[in-house]
Write a protein that binds this DNA or RNA. Structure first.
Lengths: 101, 101
DNA sequence: CATAATTACGTTCGTCGTAACCATA
DNA sequence: TATGGTTACGACGAACGTAATTATG
């Protein structure tokens, strides 16, 4: 499983509709369906109740939705903080250039 | 970037040695090197100082190491909690079977 | 010369999109 | 019959391993 899987699941869980979620993700319904299926197989847990005309979250799906959001948030923070740390270093350098000693 | 990239980076950052990290990940040095390079390109930030005979973390690398660990931890929790939630449901069902009403 | 990381290249696996399919309302 | 989700299948891209390359100590 992957961050891609998490993003796909979040989209479906929020839209409760594969078509809309696919449009939001800029992919087709077909690969989206497969991605969710694969995720459920990996977890060994059904995340969605697929009714012929509607989609609902299972209790496990509800839990996983919240946790998946935490993962993506942590990932974005990781990127942001690493870039900030690199810029911090540049800022120090620039400060030293402006006022050497 | 991906969870795979994070796992690779953590291994290199902890070993400070591509060869050992590759063995630990059960892949070869070559794809590992590419993976780290790609990650740095994605971030736009160098994470490692590569000296001909040694590897060190940049300040950004240090920060990213901690954050990457948080991401993987969150991901493992997501899996664990989703499975627990599914089992919770089964446990309830079993309880009802044992003691119906 | 030995060691450590990187690039070149061919193969394998994953992901996509198009199209066909099934099942309801 | 229209809609929504799922499989079938071929094409493209990503990741791997082997092997050759570069560069220090």
């Amino acid at each position: 499983m992957n961050l891609r899987h998490l993003r796909c699941f979040i989209a479906v869980a929020e839209e409760l509709h594969f078509g809309r979620a696919a449009r939001r993700l800029h992919i087709e319904q077909s690969p989206l369906s497969r991605t969710i299926r694969q995720m459920e197989a990996d977890l060994g847990v059904p995340l969605l109740n697929r009714l012929p005309r509607s989609v609902r979250l299972t209790p496990a799906g509800q839990v996983f939705l919240e946790e998946a959001r935490r993962v993506l948030l942590a990932f974005e923070q990781a990127q942001t903080k690493a870039r900030a740390a690199a810029n911090q270093r540049n800022t120090l350098r620039i400060a030293l250039l402006i006022r050497p000693q």
